[in-house]
Simulated scan of single mutants.
Amino acid sequence: MSALPGRLTLITGPSGVGKGTLVQRLLLLHPEIWLSISATTRAPRAGELDGQHYFFLTRDAFEGQVAEGGFLEWAEFAGNLYGTPRQPVQAQLAAGRPVLLEIELEGARQVRQSFAEAFQIFVEPPSFEELERRIRGRGTDSEEAIGRRLERAKVELAAAPEFDAVLVNGELELALAELEQLLGKGS
Rank of each mutant, 00 (worst) to 15 (best):
S2Q: 09
S2H: 14
L4S: 14
L4Y: 06
L8I: 03
P14K: 04
G16I: 00
V17G: 01
V17I: 09
K19F: 11
Q24T: 10
Q24G: 05
L26W: 02
P31K: 06
E32D: 15
S36T: 13
I37P: 04
A39W: 05
A39E: 13
T40N: 01
T41E: 01
R42Q: 05
A43W: 07
A43M: 08
G47A: 15
E48P: 00
Q52N: 07
F56C: 02
T58V: 14
R59C: 10
R59S: 02
R59V: 11
A61I: 14
E63Y: 13
G64M: 05
Q65F: 02
E73K: 06
W74T: 03
A75E: 10
G79M: 01
N80G: 00
G83C: 03
G83D: 03
Q87F: 06
P88L: 04
P88G: 07
Q92T: 10
G96I: 03
G96M: 11
G96S: 14
V99H: 14
L101T: 06
E102I: 06
E102L: 09
A108L: 07
R109A: 08
Q110H: 13
Q110Y: 09
R112C: 06
R112E: 15
A118C: 12
F119C: 05
I121S: 08
V123T: 12
P125T: 09
S127G: 04
F128Q: 06
I135Y: 11
R136V: 07
R138M: 08
A145H: 07
I146Y: 09
G147S: 14
G147R: 14
G147I: 04
G147W: 03
L150V: 11
E151I: 03
E151K: 10
E151H: 10
R152S: 13
A153W: 11
V155F: 09
F163E: 07
F163H: 02
A165S: 07
L167H: 08
L167G: 00
V168H: 08
E171A: 09
E180V: 10
Q181M: 05
Q181E: 15
L183S: 02
L183D: 02
